[in-house]
């Protein structure tokens, strides 16, 4: 089997434009050998889910610093599920208090990286948990 290239999407749902983390991650993922689609700021969950499917990414990384994550993150997972694309892994980051973790995990978010997470730890997590070779051919 030829080697699969990992494709990821970095997305910023909601209205906050603090994209420092998202931009740093996009560069970091490129340097880790991934193909990275960046959606830019101010995206609705609908736009993010549609883009994830059109781009056939393995993973969507959501970044939100405004406190709207409790509504917006689960909504992305839900929309992917509705479109039969729940094999796309969704992870999140930003200003997310620990008390919200359980709720987000329950909604289908697979991992949460808060400020202070090293870039390596995120890349490692993706390499360990994303395995595009297993992507079943439709």
């Amino acid at each position: 089997m030829p080697e699969r290239k990992i494709r990821v999407m970095v997305a910023k749902p909601g209205l906050d434009g603090h994209d420092r983390g998202a931009r740093v991650l996009a560069r970091c993922f490129r340097d880790a050998g991934f193909e990275v689609v960046y959606t830019g700021c101010h995206q609705t969950p609908e736009q993010i889910a549609a883009a994830a499917i059109q781009e056939d990414v393995d993973l969507v990384g959501l970044s939100c610093l405004s406190g709207a994550h409790r509504i917006l993150f689960p909504r992305v997972v839900e929309l992917l599920r509705e479109k039969d694309a729940d094999d796309i892994t969704v992870i999140g980051g930003g200003i997310i208090p620990e008390q919200d973790f359980t709720m987000l995990y329950d909604s289908g978010i697979k991992a949460i990286f808060t400020p202070g997470s090293s870039l390596d730890s995120i890349v490692e997590w993706i390499k360990k948990n994303i395995n595009p070779t297993s992507a079943e051919f439709l």
């Binding site: 909601g14 209205l15 906050d16 609705t44 405004s66 406190g67 709207a68 409790r70 509504i71």
Partner: peptide, 11 residues
Amino acid sequence: SPKALGEVGKC
């Protein structure tokens, strides 16, 4: 506005 979903009064 639909764009305001989840953001009202948050920040």
